[in-house]
Amino acid sequence: MANDRATAGLAGPRSAQAWRIAELEREVRELRRTNTLLRTYVAQRLDAGPHHDTGRPRTPAPPAHPQDTRRPAGERPPHRPAPHPHPAPAPAVVLRCLGPIEAVVGGRPVDLGSPKQRALLALLASAVGRPVACDVLVEELWAGSPPPAALSSLHAYVANLRRVLEPHRAPRTRPTVLRTAGRGYLLERRSVDVDVDRFTERAALAWQLQDSGDPHGALRAFDQALALWRGPAYAEAADSACVRPDGARLQELRLSATEGRCAALLAAGAHEIAVADLEAFVQDHPLREYGCELLGLALYRAGRQAEALAVLRTHQRRLARELGIDPRPALQRLQQQILHHAPSLDLRPPLAAQL
């Protein structure tokens, strides 16, 4: 009897321990099962998106803002064309033609070789994007008296320039800067940046700013345009028949831009600076009436009325003596306005300043 009680006392704790272990195992199985169910549920929700039917009424989403770029989950993004894989490359060569011909390749100046080789590049630069026949090039380079080997020399000059302008071009590959075109050669416009184009663009912008009442902006643009000049355009070939017309056109634009810059100085109130610049300009170009008109106005606004009248009268006599003509009406009107101290000659502030 005593032995049975002892055995029961030993079995009691053991049974309780076994029961506790069984309960823990059952709880672990339940947790695992719950965890599996939760993971399955979450995966289904993610696959179905926000419109998965849960059995509950759905609140309609607010309308998207016209500029709202958010998309509902699961909706494919709109098709957008991929960016161009090959953007337009920057010009490989920078040519400076407003003075002695210069070339910059890869950010560094290069040696263009002999005078005739430089003149050849100047001839081609005056017609960027247009082919120039070999016959014309030979005629211009040797001033109408080419030697028997002139054509061979021309081809050698072209080969030398190609090596200079495209130093990294692989052998026996097509040139992309100085190309063969029919029976002549051309400079490819997409591969060449010419200062002539930048000058005309900046000058056009300056006149536009001047007309819109922004003398300070116009002055900056005129300064940028005129700073590109270092001498006669296409200097090495300036006397050739095919370059002369464009050289004359560019020189006229340069003089007009110089006058425009002085007009911007006057509009900005810099009368004394304008007087100094215009006196030098009129001395070099005494028959340009607009320059003389600007000088008379600058002198008047600087408080030098007598000198302003003297300039206008001297110009009137010069026109009569050398050309047999009278000054244009604007000059005659300015002379009368200076005599009578017309209020219209006084500097008026820009419209923005008046407001």
Score class of each variant (00 low, 15 high):
241 A>I: 10
70 R>Q: 01
111 D>P: 06
116 K>W: 01
58 R>V: 14
133 A>S: 06
109 P>I: 10
269 G>I: 09
52 H>T: 09
242 C>T: 13
350 P>N: 11
46 L>V: 12
181 A>M: 06
14 R>V: 09
330 A>I: 11
277 D>Y: 02
71 R>D: 03
166 E>T: 04
90 A>I: 02
285 H>A: 05
340 H>C: 00
90 A>N: 05
41 Y>W: 07
194 V>R: 01
84 H>E: 05
214 D>M: 13
101 I>C: 06
258 T>P: 00
79 H>T: 01
317 R>D: 08
339 L>N: 02
54 T>K: 04
285 H>G: 05
69 T>Q: 00
300 Y>Q: 06
198 R>F: 04
157 Y>E: 15
81 P>M: 13
258 T>M: 11
296 G>R: 02
317 R>E: 13
185 Y>C: 04
121 L>A: 11
304 R>M: 12
96 R>H: 15
237 A>K: 15
243 V>L: 06
83 P>Y: 03
280 A>M: 08
14 R>G: 06
354 Q>D: 02
218 A>M: 04
127 A>E: 14
59 T>S: 05
25 E>R: 15
301 R>L: 07
22 A>Q: 12
145 S>L: 10
6 A>C: 03
94 V>F: 08
206 A>Y: 10
266 L>C: 06
273 I>T: 03
37 L>H: 14
118 R>F: 12
120 L>V: 08
205 L>S: 14
342 A>V: 00
61 A>I: 05
74 G>E: 02
243 V>Q: 01
125 A>V: 09
144 G>D: 06
187 L>T: 08
262 C>K: 03
197 D>A: 10
84 H>C: 00
66 P>A: 02
319 L>P: 05
335 Q>G: 11
17 Q>N: 08
17 Q>R: 10
196 V>R: 01
29 R>S: 09
54 T>L: 14
183 R>Q: 12
246 D>S: 08
200 T>C: 06
108 R>M: 11
60 P>K: 14
317 R>S: 07
199 F>V: 00
112 L>M: 08
39 R>Y: 02
230 R>N: 08
118 R>L: 06
174 R>C: 03
99 G>N: 07
320 A>H: 12
141 L>W: 06
114 S>P: 08
351 L>Y: 14
8 A>E: 11
300 Y>K: 07
208 Q>Y: 07
273 I>K: 07
127 A>F: 03
317 R>L: 11
20 R>C: 04
288 R>A: 01
328 R>G: 08
193 D>R: 11
165 L>I: 03
326 D>Y: 09
184 G>N: 13
218 A>N: 00
162 R>W: 04
318 R>S: 02
321 R>N: 02
160 N>Y: 06
197 D>S: 05
25 E>V: 07
222 F>W: 03
310 A>Y: 00
60 P>H: 14
